[in-house]
Design a protein around this nucleic acid. Structure first.
Length: 111
DNA sequence: ATGTTGACACCGG
DNA sequence: TCCGGTGCCAACA
C-alpha cells in the first residue's frame, strides 16, 4: 500500500462525499465502506485536509459537514459550525445528535 | 524500527 | 442510554 494508492483512495472518498444529497448524511464508516478501502479514520484524515478551513473556501465544493460519527454526533472540534450547516438544510436533530434513521444516505440515488 | 495520534467504530456492563 | 475499553490503520516524530 503505497502513497500513490492512498491518494487515489482519497480522491474516491472526496468523490463520494460530493454526491451526498442535500439534507442527507453518511457516517465516516459508511464512506469507507462505499469506497471499499482503508477505514473510517482515513476518511476523517482526508476531510481534515479537504474540508473546513481549506484555502479558497469559495472553491471548496466538498460538503464535509454531511459526514458524521456513527452515533450521530458531529465532529468534536467543529461541532457548532457543522450543526448549523446541517440544520440549515433540514437535517433532523434529537438533542445534540442527528437522527440517522431519518436522513442516512446509503449511496444509492434515492436523493 | 517503535511509539503516539486521531474529523472512528464496536462491544460489554 | 451512557461510558470505558479495545481494535484499527495510515501518518508522523
Amino acid at each position: 500500500v503505497g502513497v500513490v494508492e492512498s491518494a487515489e483512495v482519497a480522491r474516491r472518498i472526496l468523490a463520494c462525499v460530493e454526491i451526498i444529497p442535500r439534507g442527507r448524511v453518511m457516517t465516516y464508516g459508511d464512506v469507507a465502506e462505499y469506497v471499499g478501502d482503508r477505514g473510517p479514520r482515513f476518511v476523517g484524515r482526508v476531510l481534515a485536509e479537504n474540508g473546513d478551513g481549506v484555502a479558497g473556501d469559495e472553491e471548496n465544493t466538498v460538503p464535509w459537514h454531511r459526514v458524521l460519527r456513527a452515533d450521530g454526533h458531529c465532529a468534536p472540534h467543529l461541532y457548532r459550525r457543522q450543526r448549523e450547516l446541517l440544520l440549515a438544510e433540514g437535517v433532523p436533530f434529537r438533542g445534540e445528535r442527528v437522527v440517522l434513521r431519518e436522513c442516512r444516505w446509503d449511496g444509492r440515488s434515492n436523493t
